[in-house]
Amino acid sequence: MKNAAFFIAQLLFLTALYQLSARAVSFLHIPIPASVFGMVTLLLLLLSGAVPDRFIRSGAGFLNKHLGFFFIPIAVGLMAYGELIRSDGLVLFFMIAGSSVIGLFITAGLSHFLTVKRKPKQ
């Protein structure tokens, strides 16, 4: 019971942090999504020790594990594009796939190459 209340308090804290971030982003007119702003804010709170990580570990762990769930209702929105998918779906898929693969390989390759180059194997 106590654990459940603690868990819910963590979710409320994360929600409050997100809502405050949304206000801050629109007030300051910065081109950063509220969720990213909130992520950076929480990271700073953790680094400074203002929020000890054991205070949010179970709530954050639960949300991290099920992050994919929250995208499902939004992704179902693709069904509204049935007509476009029937007419140009294959071409659009190849465009998105091709460009994602290029980005994937360049990002991973570059990060790996620069790390290995900087720290040659003994």
């Binding site: 809502q19 971030s21 969720s35 929250f70």
Partner: peptide, 29 residues
């Protein structure tokens, strides 16, 4: 239709923002 699903979607995605904020925890570790 997707329109009929939108009220349900809005409720279920309420925690998407907080869940993204929570990614700060693995970042911290």
């Amino acid at each position: 239709s997707y329109e009929e699903y939108i009220p349900a979607k809005n409720i279920m995605t309420f925690l998407l923002g907080p869940a993204t904020v929570a990614l700060a925890v693995p970042l911290y570790h």
